[in-house]
Structure formats: C-alpha cells, structure tokens
C-alpha cells in the first residue's frame, strides 16, 4: 500500500513568522507531508503564534466550521504560553482542545516533522479504534 500523505493546514495567530518559515522548510523537504488546500481537508492543524485577540476569533470560527476534525498541534513557545509577547497562547484560550505541542523558538524543522507525524499517527489510531466494533 502506498504511504499516505499527511495534509497540514497552518494557522498563524500572531507569530513572528519564524516557526512558519521552519514549518515551510520542513514540509518542502519531506515528501510524505504536504499543505492542505482548506482547513477541512487537513489531517493536522498547526497553530503558531500567541493567539492575538484578532486572530483568535477568526481561528475559533474556522475550527467550528471545519467540525474540529483535525488534531491541533501548537508549534513554538509563543503558541504554548505567549512568551515573549506576554500572556497568551493556547494556555489562556478556553474552548480550544490542543492535542499536542512542540516547544522551541523556533523548533528545528526535524522536530516539527516528527511532531506532525506523531500527531497524525495518534489521530489515525484513535479513528481506527472508533471504527472497529
């Protein structure tokens, strides 16, 4: 069976763009991971940035629309607790279930790839479990 491609959708919610650059670098170097064209198609939703008030509203609305299907991976220190921009990140956002996170400012492309594969793998296992009676 051909190896499945993991589709990633990235939400920059106030990040400096550093993590985003490293995610781009990671994805362009690995054939088994690609961009999803829409959030609905994503296997993994990646959040970068400290969830600024402006971006948070847009993100929550989009996640609700896409039915919270994809597991959420928070990449970078500011996405976790808002450092160095002050308080923020997923730690202070109620109503957003984050499945895993990756610390670093920014984390290296290799770490990002591993975290994405892990997030997608766990998600798939859970889905398979649900489907087998």
């Amino acid at each position: 069976m051909a190896k499945r491609i993991i589709r990633v959708y990235r939400f920059n919610t106030g990040s400096c763009g550093g993590c985003d650059l490293e995610i781009m670098a990671a994805i362009s170097d690995n054939a088994d991971i690609a961009w999803a064209a829409t959030p609905q198609e994503a296997d993994v939703a990646v959040i970068t940035g400290p969830l600024t008030p402006g971006a948070k509203a847009a993100l929550v609305a989009l996640m609700r629309d896409s039915g919270d299907r994809a597991p959420i991976l928070a990449v970078g220190r500011c996405a976790i607790d808002g450092h160095p921009f002050g308080r923020g990140g997923v730690a202070s956002t109620a109503g957003l279930v984050v499945h895993s996170s990756l610390d670093g400012c920014p984390p290296a492309p290799l770490q990002i790839i591993e975290a994405i594969r892990r997030a997608a793998g766990v998600h798939e296992e859970q889905r398979d479990k649900r489907m087998t009676p």
Partner: peptide, 30 residues
C-alpha cells in the same frame, strides 16, 4: 489579525528580554 503591541511591551522589559523580543517581532526580518 495579529496586532501584538510589541512597542508598548518593550518599555516594561529589562534589556536582555527586550533584545529577545525585538528578534521576535518579525521572524523573517529578525
């Protein structure tokens, strides 16, 4: 969407933290 108020925050930070924050205002122009 991404207004973060970095300039206001710089006033409250000691120099080493301020030097870190300015490198993270923009990752590409860090």
């Amino acid at each position: 969407f991404n207004e973060r108020g970095c300039a206001e925050r710089l006033l409250r930070l000691p120099l080493p933290d301020a030097l870190h924050l300015v490198t993270r205002i923009c990752g590409e122009c860090s």
